[in-house]
Design a protein around this nucleic acid. Structure first.
Length: 500
RNA sequence: GGCGCGGUCGUCUAGAGGCCUAGGAUACCUGGUUUUCAUCCAGGAGAUCACGGGUUCGAAUCCCGUCCGCGCUGCCA
């Protein structure tokens, strides 16, 4: 049983690229688990690779998590508790542990050069042998070491992998796991420039920061035995481990930006996805609510499938027993479905507010006002992404451009269309009440009077007003535009048809 | 090559030996509502449960083998 008081989880992004969808899902599961058990969720920046880490990417990770609503209880800006939470500021700690391991005989200096190692690996691969480090520097004599030093070689520190050991742990998701230490070569833990490798900094920090549960991607499964051996050598407490199945491209390879949108901030947030939708979608990749959660009835009763969950509801339902073991393909169609749903559910004022940046960028509106509200209201149910707002509403702000041919409804003719438009123009000129319902009454009656189907009247007017084959309804458009603009646009349409 | 992890409709999944003539969601198709699109509603098609052997009265579910896919095998994380 999990002791609520002790649950501490973390997300440990490496700021070497834009915060990735896969990392976000890992963060979500960690966050949910922490919240579920009244624990704490920690953000730790793993920027030990100084060549590739940037502040921009660190900010991107924070922006992504904030946008998703996955707030952290401890992080770089709150270093007081177990901080600092940026590994670049913790280098002395890793150095101390690494030195201690060398002193205690658990690790050693390795003077092999990159070239030597590459060559060695290539030879092994050619012989179809496992590309495992030979351990050449393991028992380097004092003289040889001195010789290397004299040559100016800077040593890396390698961990001395113990022989004939079976490393075991019980994975939160996969169950009992077992690895044979003989299959693992001595691995580097500190680079010649003194920077630690993920393997050591990660487990040292998990211990120092009192992380109770490490939930990460399946790609770390094979790293776990190495880290367990390190923890053993350093006498560090070991957290529980859970390895989440991967998220895949359609071709079933590990999800990548080449083949999918992956950046939370660029591809999802800026493209007009709602965090609610992304969260909901993400949660269902590899997880399903327990039977009892999705149904008011008992497990044996009729199952009611619930598919929409808020973050709070997710906290209530989340459990590792419901996390699947098999990888899942990222399907943007499903995300679009969730996004459309959340857009439709959203309160109009809120939706307008969220559409505003896109509208401003397209130079359609400058501020949030009545008109924006009305316009967004008219396209709300057909919007899948906020970024579609400008394209969907452009004709409300500018005279539409379209081909006169479009005015003629399917199965109608130019003559009937012209007549319909002219008659409409006439009755609308005399009308004063431009509310939706009275317009509907008026136009329907008119269509009947001139012996034309409703569609043959309403289609051309709708096109005259919107310039589009698909748009909000005719009556809504007329009542939105009002008398002057409506008549003007109908007049333009009549002229276009005549001159055709 | 070695080790590890996986394998139920295109996709996400339900499934813990009989409730499964394998359920839901999405996507797709059809019909209804409607002036178009969308929404909404109804219906349809779509899975030899990777394959082969067991165990059992009975297997998608348990066991073994095979195949396939992916991951790791870095002085990346």
């Amino acid at each position: 049983m999990i002791d609520n008081a002790e649950v501490r989880t973390r997300i440990a992004p490496s700021p070497t690229g834009l915060f990735h969808f896969g990392s976000a899902r890992t963060a979500l599961f960690n966050w949910l688990f922490a919240k579920k058990h009244d624990g704490r969720f920690i953000l730790r920046i793993e920027d030990t690779d100084r060549e590739r880490s940037t502040e921009e990417y660190e900010l991107d990770a924070e922006g992504a998590l904030s946008w998703l609503g996955l707030g952290w209880d401890e992080g770089p800006e709150t270093p007081d508790l177990y901080g600092p939470y940026r590994q670049s500021e913790r280098l002395p700690i890793y150095e101390r542990f690494a030195k201690k391991m060398v002193e205690d005989g658990f690790a050693y200096y390795c003077y092999c050069t990159q070239e030597e190692l590459d060559k060695e690996r290539k030879e092994l691969e050619e012989k179809k042998l496992p590309p495992k480090y030979s351990g050449r520097c393991r028992n380097l004599s004092k003289e040889d070491a001195d010789k290397c030093k004299a040559e100016g070689r800077k040593p890396a520190i390698r961990f001395k992998v113990p022989e004939n050991k079976t490393i075991k742990w019980k994975d939160l998701i996969h169950g009992p796991m077992e690895f044979d230490s003989n299959l693992i070569g001595d691995f580097v833990i500190v680079k010649p420039n003194g920077d630690p490798i993920f393997l050591i900094s990660n487990i040292v920090d998990d211990a120092e920061m009192k992380i109770s549960h490490v939930v990460r991607g399946d790609d770390h499964l094979a790293n776990t035995p190495k880290q367990l051996m390190l923890a053993d050598a350093m006498n560090l407490p070991v957290p529980e481990y859970g390895h989440l199945p991967m998220i895949l491209n359609p071709d079933r390879t590990k999800m990548s930006k080449r083949k999918n949108p992956t950046s939370i901030t660029h591809d999802f947030r800026d493209e007009g996805y709602l965090p609610e939708a992304v969260i909901n979608f993400m949660a269902f990749l590899g997880w399903t609510p327990a039977r009892s959660a999705s149904s008011t009835a008992d497990a044996g009763g009729p199952k009611i499938n619930k598919e929409f969950f808020t973050l709070d509801e997710l906290v209530g339902e989340f459990d590792f027993s419901q996390v699947g073991k098999s990888p899942a393909v990222f399907d943007v169609e499903k995300l679009n479905f969730y996004n459309g749903y959340y857009i439709r559910q959203m309160e109009l004022g809120e939706l307008a507010k969220r559409c505003l940046p896109y509208m401003e960028k397209a130079s359609l509106v400058k501020k949030e006002d009545e008109k924006l509200l009305d316009v967004i209201g008219l396209v709300q149910e057909r919007m899948k992404k906020l970024s579609e707002a400008p394209a969907l509403t452009e004709f409300f702000f500018k005279k539409p451009e379209y081909d006169a041919e479009l005015l003629i409804a399917k199965k109608s003719t130019k003559e009937i269309t012209l007549k319909a438009l002219e008659e409409s123009y006439k009755v609308l000129t005399e009308e004063v009440d431009f509310t939706r319902d009275s317009i509907e009454q008026l136009l329907r009656a008119m269509a009947e009077n001139i012996g034309v189907s409703a569609g043959e009247v309403l289609w051309p007017i709708r096109v005259a007003l919107s310039g589009k084959a698909a748009s909000p309804g005719t009556f809504e458009l007329i009542s939105f535009f009002g008398k002057n603009e409506t008549l003007e646009r109908i007049k333009t349409a009549i002229d276009m048809l005549n001159s055709k």
